[in-house]
Nucleic acid binder design. Structure first.
Lengths: 242, 242
DNA sequence: ATGTATCTTTGATCTAGGTCAAGTTCGTCA
DNA sequence: TGACGAACTTGACCTAGATCAAAGATACAT
């Protein structure tokens, strides 16, 4: 049941059909998009677009992971978001890009000319409604991350990150499952507002305490999920009254 | 030329008419909104809604400033956004609220029943288009703030904050103008991911260095704008190629 | 006017996490 | 199969900003 993306299949078989900017579109709308889209693949580590560049396309990530980041003049870098399949890149209504976008793994994008996409936004309500919804979700995620960056300790940051990775790819029920860190220690550090040494030390100490075990630098298994969640510093509930 | 908001005036004379969620609406659409809206005012310091509460309304700030924040169990607080006139509160499509919303100054909201607003989002494209646009702008601002929280020094954080306050209420040309900090030292600290003591010390040192001068705890004038901008740690240009 | 609470400043000290510096592991390519 | 480089770990030390503590300011209520 493993989706292998194939450009020739068309939108109907697209793995992100029901989650991307096109999610709310009906068959007719989809056939319009079909005629406008094009694919492009970027190798691992390759820059997709730089801050300040002209934005010629609005794209959706079809496969792979990209990062959004900003680097200050002296080299300090902050990753402000990870773009997973179905996430979009670009801002209709803006001429240039505000953050650097880089392929963290090999990335395939489904792209639309920005000008054409802007006409879709005004002419096809299903598009603006879906982009609105996605932007509001991203906004929420960004604000949650602001709490982490501004107020959490190194340990809480790492625990939150690991828990996020686990939550994102856990197959229901199947516990004791192996997971893969999608980022290097340095990339994790830039995402969490830490140094790579601190990331390494915190991971080592969680290993020593028996919360996690690593089979390899990138592959790990959670041994004590309760301890992991406790270490995130978040409420167990999402603010819901019990 | 000072707008005094008056509920009786109706949408046409509303001070946020051209910037809020209704900005793109035509006269007919506006008259629909007119029949659905209601106003509510909150006193300075009063909570507007708590994280986890049922979201009965979607609102726009008409006057005043509100804060969006999250507090961890042990009391650490992070302000994740300031809501100024025209900014909206609430997320169409969600049942509950994700952050605490508090009136920083006296705040007047223009409110819509959430359920009714959700029908507007599906029936009136001008609404979803405008909310999309605003959400994308907010997302950008949140990401910029993530860079500040994750990578900037205390001095850079304060300089960025002051510069933001100045930019937001500068009358063109008029330099040497007096500005007012909208927040207490503690609120500034919670917005910047610092302690109130560090905020106070950094402000004192910028005063000592002649970058700013205070006429009062809240009122200040910028004496050296170049030094202030230099201290933010940002590129002077917005990544634009010169 | 005066007392009280809130906000702010400043000083002294402490510490989490950064910086600097070796090593170690692992994957790749000859 | 070995050697090179990238990624990672660990240790020693340092510092920016937190914490703890004590005075000043300011505003507000009586």
């Amino acid at each position: 049941m493993n989706f292998v993306f194939n450009e020739r299949d068309g939108c109907a078989k697209c793995p992100i059909r029901h989650r991307a900017v096109c999610a709310r579109c009906d068959e007719d709308e989809l056939s319009v998009l079909e005629g406008m889209k094009s694919y492009k693949t970027f190798a691992q580590g390759e820059p997709i677009i730089w801050r300040g560049d002209d934005m010629h396309h609005i794209s959706s990530v079809v496969a792979g992971i990209a990062s959004l980041s900003r680097t200050l003049e002296d080299g300090r870098t902050q990753v402000v978001g990870l773009l997973l399949p179905s996430d979009f890149i670009g801002r209709p209504g803006r001429e240039t890009v505000d953050f650097d976008v880089t392929a963290v793994t090999e990335v395939t994008l489904c792209r639309f000319q920005r000008k054409q996409f802007e006409t879709l936004v005004t002419d096809v309500p299903h598009i603006s409604q879906r982009v609105m919804e996605m932007a509001l979700d991203e906004l929420n995620a960004a604000r949650e991350w602001m709490v982490l960056l501004g107020r959490k300790t190194a340990r809480e940051k790492i625990a939150t990150f690991i828990e996020m990775v686990v939550r994102r790819d856990t197959v229901p029920v199947h516990t004791g499952q192996a997971h893969t860190l999608p980022l290097t220690r340095e990339e994790i550090a830039n995402f969490l507002g830490l140094t790579l040494e601190t990331v390494s030390r915190q991971l080592s100490s969680m290993k020593k305490e028996g919360v996690l075990t690593f089979s390899d630098r990138r592959k790990f298994t959670v041994l004590n999920l309760a301890a992991l969640q406790e270490a995130t510093g978040d409420d167990a509930d999402g603010g819901v009254i019990i």
